[in-house]
Design a protein around this nucleic acid. Structure first.
Lengths: 336, 336
DNA sequence: CCGCCTTTTGCAAGCGTGTGCAAAGCTTGC
DNA sequence: GCAAGCTTTGCACACGCTTGCAAAAGGCGG
């Protein structure tokens, strides 16, 4: 198969009987073409099956319309939901999403960003991990926008989108207290990301402020299996907690399943559980998990919106957006 | 922010004191450069923060290293798992994934493919929907590889990866029969894709062959909510089925939850349930769903492998791969 | 009909890279 | 020491597109 068969603007121009620039202008929004030539061109293009070569266009303009999404654990419910929102909104904004998977190894994010540079991406949106400061500066120097979602970093330049994790941790304590819970637990992963730690700190702070017993366990990554292990740890203690806040819905599902099916504990009668993320499974009948909803649509809107503003503009500073996670009440916490 | 700051090969060449071609060759695998010049070049590149412009490279070679993944409902467990495998394997193969979201509207896939052409993608992998024959031909004519996963199409050219859906439908009938079930049900969505219909046909065929009562319902898309609705339909009948095969794990989860929590039916004692996909939730304690596993890793391997073979080769025909979905036994079907 | 202004058109110069070709440098065998 | 062979290097062109610039065309009032 000879990859020479692509139709170029020149061929369209010849068939349409116009100059090559006319073809170019026809496909460039805002360029000056008469209705008549435009029609001739589009007809010829249609007939020949012409498609603008974005590579060449990007080469000229020095930006490609590509936005890189840098993410690990794509198959996770929360991540994939965010991905859905981001890709959708990017498409609406006329951008195209390049998906780069990272693992937890060092330099993984840096390699992803370097790929973003090679493809002259307009922007990169980082959902997991944290890049090295030097490559961040390189991106910014080349006019590449950067968005960090749920990861804190002091490096100025990127847009930082975060939630009120600390306050959420505080709020769920009052919910537990109102349900009459006395012995609180926080089930965390030991990933140690700022958002997870923020929830933990807020939770512990509010609990001690109210004089409630509180203890913390951290284990593994934020998945279902880790939730089961954490349940094992908490529920085999001599004195069991009667309320547990899981840093993540996946942890909460694992925790709840272990509590019910391995320990025969009834939720919420003997144990109240709350999670964070509001993944789809949280609303399934088997769980009915009371949880904080990640405002994924809003996050995506902020991220994509920020890519469009001030397109040819000056330094716009280092903005930072803070969204609030609303508590969604279901049935895993007793009524007050 | 002036987007003019990108370092070009020329600048690297000047700093390294070599010709620009030397720089080019240094970053082109298999080109002839002495170790000495290579070192000079890489040092200079490192110091300057040079990154090859893949746009320009793609323009020359007329292929970009980009592979488009065309998919709807990314946030669905099975889809996102497949996506994880595909992106991972693509990266290992030195390709880069471009994610294009489609909706169910007409022409959505065609628009995606046209974008693939504009970016001179090496290949497109289609996970949902079916493209128009004319644009398929256009892709193929331009040397763009095409992979169709779980969608049947007679158009020659693309690689088609399918499962033994029909046989799976048959096999689960024998499992139900061995469990002593007499009245069989198939819960399908009315999406009507070939894979879903294949499972249905196999199921019905085997059931009637064994002289077992069998009935089919179709509703909505293949999601959790549809499963609940289908349960409603089947379980309010005067004569309830004692075994149901759901076309999808999500349907099965919804079905099982409704059966247990709304109808107080015990699974598997009063009702055996099986699903298809083996999403992560199928293994969760609350479900323990017996189901057919989509061989996602194998699917991705076949798809990506096919992109690499015969890179500069001739017409390779219209190959087709058929994989088998293994039945994963859990606890939603009674022991034989 | 002419001068003036606005819109449209064509020309040509790039954008950053890969690569064929020929010259130059180096190695090897006799 | 020299011819023959191989490796390395530089030159220059091509890839398909955008866009500034100037020429051409069209509109309009006097």
């Amino acid at each position: 198969m000879p990859p020479k068969d692509f139709i170029s603007a020149l061929e369209v121009a010849q068939r349409a009987g116009v100059s090559r620039s006319a073809v170019s202008r026809t496909f460039t929004p805002g360029a000056s073409v008469s209705a008549e030539t435009r029609k001739k061109v589009t007809d010829a293009a249609e007939a020949l099956g012409y498609h603008v070569n974005e590579l060449a266009r990007g080469l000229m303009r020095n930006q490609s319309g590509i936005v890189c999404l840098i993410v690990s654990d794509v198959a996770t419910p929360y991540r994939s939901a965010l991905l859905r929102e981001l890709t959708g909104k990017l498409q609406n904004a006329g951008k195209v999403a390049m998906l780069i998977n990272t693992d937890r190894s060092d330099g993984s994010v840096d390699r992803a960003l370097s790929q973003a540079i090679r493809y002259r991406a307009d922007a990169s949106i980082i959902l997991s991990g944290l890049p090295d400061a030097s490559i961040v500066r390189l991106c910014l120097k080349n006019g590449q926008r950067l968005v960090l979602i749920n990861r804190d970093d002091d490096e100025p330049g990127p847009l930082k989108i975060n939630l009120d994790d600390f306050e959420a941790g505080e709020r769920i304590v009052t919910a537990f207290a109102r349900a009459g819970c006395k012995s609180l637990a926080f089930a965390n992963s030991d990933a140690g990301t700022p958002s997870l730690m923020g929830r933990e700190r807020g939770f512990v702070a509010a609990a001690t402020r109210l004089g409630l017993e509180v203890s913390v366990e951290r284990y593994g990554w934020t998945g279902y299996e880790a939730g089961r292990v954490l349940a094992q740890r908490f529920l085999t203690r001599p004195r069991r907690p009667d309320a547990v806040f899981c840093a993540t819905d996946l942890l909460a599902c694992g925790f709840m399943d272990a509590a019910r099916h391995q320990f025969g504990i009834s939720v919420p009668d003997q144990l109240c559980i709350a999670g964070f993320d509001d993944i789809e499974q949280a609303s399934w009948l088997s769980y009915g998990l009371t949880t904080f909803a990640q405002p994924v649509a809003e996050i995506a809107a902020k991220a994509v919106g920020w890519l469009s503003i001030d397109e040819n503009g000056n330094d716009i500073g280092s903005p930072s957006v803070r969204l609030t996670a609303e508590l969604v009440w279901r049935t895993s916490i007793r009524a007050g």
